[in-house]
Design a protein around this nucleic acid. Structure first.
Lengths: 225, 225
DNA sequence: TTCGTCATGTAATGGGTTACATGATTAC
DNA sequence: GTAATCATGTAACCCATTACATGACGAA
């Protein structure tokens, strides 16, 4: 039962819930698809996988990756990890947690990344929790700034200002998301293969208004250790 | 010569260069004034101070804090740390480094916080290095997004989009700063007590256009362990 | 046949937190 | 006199990285 890192364990469980994978691929997904928030090294990932197996949440299977809908690279895998029933149950239990941990930067991002498998009410609690966390932070920053403004040089001031602006921006983002959730819109379910949706109590389609970003395929690079 | 954490060591040296302080106060400054980037605990700070003393960069002095221009709280201190000549020299050497480390998130923030004591050319290199670092990151995100867009659900997509937007925003901020530096504006020198400016090769005043933020003194709170 | 990437691991180390232990000083 | 805050420290642990070691497979 040795308790390993919250966020890695969570993300691994979440990714494996979508489909079985081996460690190498798992790490890539962690760093790219979900890589917005965090990059983990093998030295962290493999030991973690072991303890998850030891906990009965995963099983190791030898053999080839299914590679779902598109067998792009028919590459052979050594050890494929698959979520067990207990693993699934455990993940669902983690998903339903709304404690203060879930509002911390990295933890929040991980939670958000799996909103597609999260019930609406939990989503709301997490978003609102995050928002009030940030608002607290803003209060502190404002207070501290008011106390020390004249003692600081302009660079320090500029740094603080930029920091606050970033936080304010995230609050606005959260506001939009929360409003969107409240209005009954649901961003879930547009993925290729959707694993069992547990308790969606609505279904009105239509996403958030997208700000125009247009990515182009450029340097198809990848991080290696 | 045991090498302790780069950023903490750097920040401690930088703060003590401005004026001598004891550990407790140092930590507060680290968490509030410069607290935008990082909070350290005593368990990290005190051992670090010890090794800095062992390296000959600080000396411990018993006695009262000078509290500079304003003896607001005439509070007595146990151990006041003061930068030695070697410490000053070492800090200056750290300040002049422009290696790739200086472009990482936290490290960069720490560097920026001490731009007031940094020469213009180093400032430029750090800002430009940071910018190209972020641009690389953007490329990767764009590429990864282009590769995986259709496999992702809308929440994951939204998370990526927001992440990219944040990075783009920081790039724009850096652009302004760089332009400002190039134009000869210098944000340095408006602090109450300015420690020796080493090599300013310009002096045109006038800061960056400030976006309006108006802080009010609200909850004058402080983080305690 | 050699290079790149896929693939799995381990040992040493780093950098930091938490919880604890201790005590002085100030405000009420 | 007691609570809050100031003030300094240590030991145990946690999470993760780095560098290393190993080897299979495909493409040039």
């Amino acid at each position: 039962m040795s308790r390993r890192s919250g966020i890695l364990e969570f993300a691994v469980l979440g990714l494996l819930r979508e489909s079985p994978m081996h460690g190498y691929e798992l790490r890539k997904r962690l760093n790219t698809s979900l890589g917005v928030f965090r990059a983990f090294s093998y030295g962290t990932l493999y030991p973690c996988l072991k303890t998850l197996v030891a906990n009965g949440w995963l099983i190791e299977e030898p053999g080839n990756t299914a590679e779902a809908t598109a067998p792009l690279t028919g590459r052979r895998a050594k050890i494929v990890y698959r979520l067990t029933a207990e693993g699934k149950e455990h993940f669902e239990q983690l998903l339903s947690q709304t404690g203060p941990d879930a509002y911390e930067d990295e933890h929040f991002a991980a939670r958000f990344a799996f909103f597609g498998q999260t019930s609406r009410d939990v989503r709301m609690r997490v978003l609102e929790g995050r928002r009030s966390r940030l608002e607290e932070r803003l209060e502190k920053m404002r207070a501290s700034l008011a106390r020390t403004r004249e003692r600081l040089d302009d660079y320090t001031l500029e740094l603080q200002r930029h920091g606050m602006e970033s936080v304010e921006r995230e609050v606005r983002w959260l506001n939009e998301l929360i409003e969107s959730e409240r209005a009954g819109r649901d961003l879930r379910g547009s993925a290729t293969e959707g694993p069992a949706q547990q308790d969606t109590t609505s279904g009105a389609p239509g996403g958030l208004p997208r700000s125009g970003d247009e990515p182009r395929p450029d340097t198809p690079d990848d991080t290696a250790t």
